[in-house]
Amino acid sequence: MRLHDLAHGRTGDKGDVSNISVIAYRAEDFPRLLADLTPARVAAHLGQPEASVTRHVLPQLQALNFVLRGALTGGVTRSLALDAHGKCLSSVLLDMDL
């Protein structure tokens, strides 16, 4: 099963910091997301250092918010990446196998 089957999300960027929300479609799946989507696992999936990832939990919205510091190779203004905003990161995260 992929994360994409259970959840949706959105990426935002500010400077060199990316944030990715992961929101369970159904409340009954939220405990599983809470258990499986540790900052370490998310960091590994996105190829980021574990210490750069912080997780915030919003249980009433069955949502997680991951904050990734230094994830945008300098930020949108000077990054050489084609997707300098990191817009695609939420879709990449939803590709994770659970």
């Binding site: 949706h8 999300g9 959105r10 935002g12 960027d13 500010k14 910091v17 944030n19 929300s21 929101i23 479609y25 912080t54 915030h56 919003l58 009433q60 919205l61 949502a63 918010n65 904050v67």
Partner: peptide
Amino acid sequence: ATCTEQLLYEIHDPARYMQPDVIADFSGV
């Protein structure tokens, strides 16, 4: 779903959204 995605868009700590006039708390929205 659309509102939840936008609520967290470009937000770091939802309990401390730093603004010039207030530190907004979205954690219990």
